[in-house]
């Protein structure tokens, strides 16, 4: 049911772990629903110099986290913000239909981390990032992630 690429990123996840000098951290998902994704970034001069993740979730959640970090590593913030869930899915050679929400989570995780980066600098991220999917930070209700 999973592609070879998904299995590869699940068994050998890239960029897994904490980033001690991260200046942008975003957490999305909900343990009740069975997946939670935390993205750490080190951003310098608008470039994502380093990135890592930690994920509680199924094979697809871990693989999409891994792939998303690979896709935005070394990219500018603008490039990272344009990452879509379908780009992550395509890079993994597809996901089973019931797992597509995992790729949405990866896109949201990247946006949440960038939102945190702006917030730390006293900049309202919403005009730039859009909704950062970090419900605790923006106090607006989200129902369907």
């Amino acid at each position: 049911m999973y592609s070879e690429k998904v299995l590869d990123h699940f068994y050998n996840p890239r960029n897994v772990g904490e980033l001690p000098d991260a200046n942008a951290i975003g957490t999305v998902g909900n343990p009740r629903c069975g997946d939670i994704m935390k993205i750490y970034m080190k951003i310098e001069d608008d470039i994502i110099k380093d990135i890592s993740f930690k994920t509680f979730g199924c094979g697809a959640a871990i693989a999409t986290s891994s792939m998303a970090t690979e896709l935005v590593k070394g990219k500018t913030i603008q490039e990272a913000l344009s990452l879509t869930n379908s780009a992550v899915t395509d890079a993994l050679d597809g996901l089973p239909p019931q797992k597509l929400h995992c790729s949405v989570l990866a896109e949201e995780g990247i946006k949440a981390a960038i939102g945190d980066y702006y917030r730390r600098q006293g900049i309202d991220p919403e005009p730039i990032v859009g909704c950062s999917f970090d419900c605790e930070a923006c106090h607006k209700e989200h129902h369907e992630h």
Binding site: G34, F56, C58, G59, A61, I62
Partner: peptide, 14 residues
């Protein structure tokens, strides 16, 4: 606790 079942099943399968 703290982990998800399907990722356990996949890892066991490997």
């Amino acid at each position: 606790e703290f982990i998800e079942g399907e990722s356990m099943i996949l890892s066991l399968d490997a």
